[in-house]
Simulated assay, not measured.
Amino acid sequence: MSSLTDSKHKWLLPPIRRNMVVVLAICIVGLILCVIASLVLGSRPVTYHELINGLFNQQADSYGASVVQKRISRTIFSLFCGAALGISGALMQAVTRNPIADPSILGVNMGASLFVVSGIAFLNISTAYQYIWFALAGAMITAVFVFGIGSMGRGGATPLKLVLAGAATSAALSSLVIAIMIPRSYVMDQFRFWQVGSVGAGDWSSITTFIPFLVVGILLGTITTSALNALALGDEVATGLGVRTGLLRLLAALAAVLLCGATTALAGPIGFVGLLSTHIIRLILGPDMGYIIPMSAITGAIILTISDVCGRLIGSPGELEVGVVTAFIGAPILIILARKAKVQSL
Score class of each variant (00 low, 15 high):
Val95Pro: 04
Gln190Phe: 12
Thr75Asn: 05
Ile293Lys: 01
Leu24Tyr: 10
Asn229Tyr: 08
Cys27Gly: 11
Val144Asp: 09
Leu160Tyr: 12
Ala331Tyr: 00
Leu313Tyr: 11
Ala90His: 01
Ala37Asn: 07
Ser316Asp: 03
Leu24Arg: 05
Arg44Gly: 09
Thr208Gln: 07
Ala230Lys: 04
Val95Lys: 00
Val196Ser: 14
Ser113Ala: 15
Ile52Arg: 13
Ile302Arg: 01
Ile314Leu: 11
Val216Gly: 07
Ala255Lys: 00
Ala252His: 01
Thr278Asn: 05
Met20Pro: 07
His279Lys: 05
Ala238Gly: 06
Thr209Lys: 00
Val163Ala: 15
Met188Pro: 05
Ala139Ile: 03
Arg71Asn: 04
Ile32Asp: 03
Leu266Val: 04
Ile298Phe: 14
Thr127Arg: 00
Leu33Tyr: 08
Gly315Thr: 03
Leu250Arg: 00
Ile178Arg: 10
Ser3Phe: 14
Arg339Pro: 06
Pro159Cys: 08
Leu24Phe: 15
Thr75Pro: 02
Leu24Pro: 07
Ile141Gln: 03
Gly271Lys: 04
Ile336Arg: 09
Arg192Glu: 13
Leu285Asn: 05
Gly166Thr: 04
Ala157Asp: 04
Ala327Ser: 14
Ala301Ile: 09
Leu250Cys: 14
Arg44Cys: 10
Ser126Leu: 00
Tyr186Asn: 14
Ser118Phe: 13
Ala171Asn: 06
Ile120Val: 15
Ile281Tyr: 01
Glu319Cys: 05
Tyr63Ile: 15
Gly286Gln: 00
Gly274Ala: 06
Leu12Ser: 11
Ala253Ile: 13
Met188Ala: 15
Gly42Ala: 09
Val196Met: 12
Ile36Asp: 03
Val243Pro: 02
Met289His: 15
Phe328Cys: 12
Thr142Cys: 09
Arg18Tyr: 09
Gly148Met: 14
Gly300Arg: 01
Ile207His: 03
Ile76Trp: 09
Arg244Asn: 15
Trp11Pro: 02
Lys8Asp: 10
Met181Gln: 12
Thr263Glu: 01
Ser104Gln: 11
Ile306Asn: 01
Ser296Tyr: 06
Ala327Glu: 00
Asn19Phe: 13
Glu321Trp: 11
Leu346Met: 15
Gly311Arg: 01
Val23Thr: 15
Leu231Asp: 08
Ser43Cys: 06
Ala238Met: 03
Thr75Asp: 06
Gly197Ser: 02
His49Ser: 15
Leu55Cys: 10
Gly153Arg: 06
Ile329Met: 11
Ile280Glu: 09
Ile333Arg: 00
Ser62Gln: 01
Ala83Arg: 01
Ala338Leu: 14
Arg17Met: 12
Tyr63Trp: 12
Thr278Tyr: 02
Ile182Val: 15
Gly315Trp: 06
Asn57Pro: 06
Val40Phe: 08
Phe145Thr: 11
Val187Gly: 04
Leu85His: 04
Thr225Cys: 14
Ala327His: 04
Met295Glu: 05
Thr263Lys: 00
Ser43Tyr: 07
Leu31Glu: 02
Ala157Leu: 07
Ala90Gln: 03
Leu41Ser: 09
Leu219Val: 15
